[in-house]
Amino acid sequence: MTEVTMTVNGKTVSGSVEGRTLLVEFIRNDLHLTGTHVGCDTSQCGACAIHVNGKLVKACTMFALEADGAEVSTIEGQANDDGSLNVIQQAFKEHHGLQCGFCTPGMVMAAADLLKTNSKPTELEIREHLEGNICRCTGYHNIVKAILAASGQDVSNIAAE
């Protein structure tokens, strides 16, 4: 076992892990931050998407030890300081961008990553940015709409009716 220390959602945390301990396992099992999910074993579904040093990554495809000293942020760290939903989270709620909620944390993290570098993405850019996030419930329609809305764009063209 090796000691690992990182900053997660602004808090310094440490624990001892095996070489094979995945970052997502450390986050879920050791830190009990269970908002980051595991939906596949081939690094494709994106339910485990988090930010490491400001970059979107799949926490299931990185060892905990690779994040030693890193700045990690997960879904649990996304809310506003008063605990209320942030702009992206609020847009997901407003536009029904989630159903069962399992892929949602990864979607929110992917959306935040996109809007950081592209403040007014087009519908196509959003759809392409979600390539690594699979949702089985929503058909993506309302996720795309939510992200457009979160970026302050008009979504009346994406209206359902």
């Binding site: 879904i75 407003e94 989630l98 909620g101």
Partner: peptide
């Protein structure tokens, strides 16, 4: 009406079976 269950899923506070220890 907007869904009341959304808040817990959006905040990472859902409680799925695998989240139970």
């Amino acid at each position: 009406i907007k869904r009341r269950e959304d808040a817990r899923f959006l905040l990472g506070s859902g409680r799925y079976s695998d989240d139970i220890t």
